[in-house]
């Protein structure tokens, strides 16, 4: 596929700029944080344009706020598909939900339960179809990386009866698929972004494996190749993983991230703080996109900002329903450059 020139994104960029204003700013987030009744919060979201394209969203949202968030994400993906000259960059991110669905379908199949209603509708493949493909073991319609990963995870599960291997194999393939899509699209911005996503996923894996004292071979199975810092091969993550990790990050030119992580390690912050650092790190990649006039960057940035916004809203509202102290919520809120 030929590379799309950045001028071709002029329309998409401008439309994104026009809708960006509707993202929640600090002011709105603070207002939400000060609310105590979840019903008020839902009303506030509906007034802010959530679930605008769905008629009965107010009723549904009152029952389950997740429906509202799902609809909003779906709207965002559809919006981007509509404005972009090519759907590929959006499919790249939507494919993550295909992998999610595949994991669910496989696990449910091995467990003998029905999950068809719980599958996500955000993927590129209809959940019903995907379910059919996987149940029939018919992978002709699926992308190569995807079908191979499903195949591999089925075999690995039959061998080990360990549900974790399904996640490990498909998660890895999901990132690899993103990377190959990004490279095929020949957009350096996308490739860099996917590499950053792989990096953060790897860091998450390394730190959590260490925190939980998982065996060494686990980490080797779990790490995802293709990021900015090398994994596997000569790199051994064991024992003092943290120092090793920081050193490797420094060597790979990710000093800023390494510095922040080092600080979090020193202050002995929990995993929640580290996850926030990682999420913020990805979002900070979009900082320059704020000033971009043309190109794919602002469009993808909008997608991520929207996802972050929904993440934050879920955090706030779940906290509100369960009466979690506002402080615990506030310290977990992700950075948003809206």
């Amino acid at each position: 596929m030929g590379r799309i020139r950045e001028e071709d994104y002029a329309y998409a960029t401008a439309r994104v700029r026009a809708v960006e204003v509707r993202l929640m700013d600090d002011n709105k987030i603070n207002r939400l944080l000060n609310m105590t009744d979840p019903q008020d919060a839902v009303k506030f979201l509906l007034e802010s344009g959530y679930g605008a394209d769905h008629t009965d969203s107010e009723k549904k949202a009152a029952e389950n706020i997740e429906v509202l968030f799902d609809d909003e994400l779906k709207n965002t993906y559809n919006f981007l598909l509509e404005i972009l000259p090519s759907p590929e960059p959006v499919y790249l991110f939507m494919r993550r939900y295909d992998y999610l669905n595949a994991k669910l379908i496989l696990k449910a199949e091995f467990l003998g339960v029905n999950v068809l209603e719980r599958l996500s509708h955000l993927g590129t493949i209809e959940p019903e179809k995907l379910h059919e493909y996987i149940t029939d073991r018919n992978f002709d319609e699926l992308p190569e990386i995807f079908s191979e990963a499903i195949h591999e995870s089925i075999e690995a599960f039959n061998l080990t009866r360990d549900p974790q291997v399904i996640d490990l194999i498909l998660d890895k393939a999901s990132y690899q698929n993103m990377l190959s899509d990004a490279m095929r699209y020949e957009d350096p911005f996308l490739t860099k972004l996917v590499k950053k996503l792989i990096d953060t996923a790897n860091i998450r894996i390394i730190i959590r494996t260490e925190l939980l004292g998982q065996p060494e071979e686990f980490i080797k199975k779990a790490l995802i190749e293709g990021g900015n810092f090398p994994v596997g091969g000569s790199q051994e993550f064991s024992g003092q993983n943290r120092e090793k990790l920081l050193q490797i990050l420094n060597e790979a030119g990710l000093e800023k991230l390494s510095l922040k992580l080092a600080k979090a390690f020193e202050n002995n912050h929990g995993i929640s703080e580290i996850e926030k650092i990682l999420d913020d790190y990805v979002i900070s990649y979009f900082k320059p996109s704020k000033f971009a006039i043309l190109g794919l960057d602002p469009v993808i940035a909008y997608l991520f900002l929207k996802e972050t916004e929904i993440k934050n809203l879920r955090l706030i509202i779940t906290g509100m329903v369960n009466k979690i102290p506002a402080e615990a919520i506030r310290e977990r809120l992700r950075m948003s450059y809206a």
């Binding site: 001028e7 002029a10 329309y11 998409a12 960029t13 401008a14 439309r15 994104v16 700029r17 026009a18 404005i83 006039i293």
Partner: peptide, 8 residues
């Protein structure tokens, strides 16, 4: 193109 995007 940009103008069309905004007007949309």
């Amino acid at each position: 193109q940009a103008a069309a995007g905004v007007v949309a």
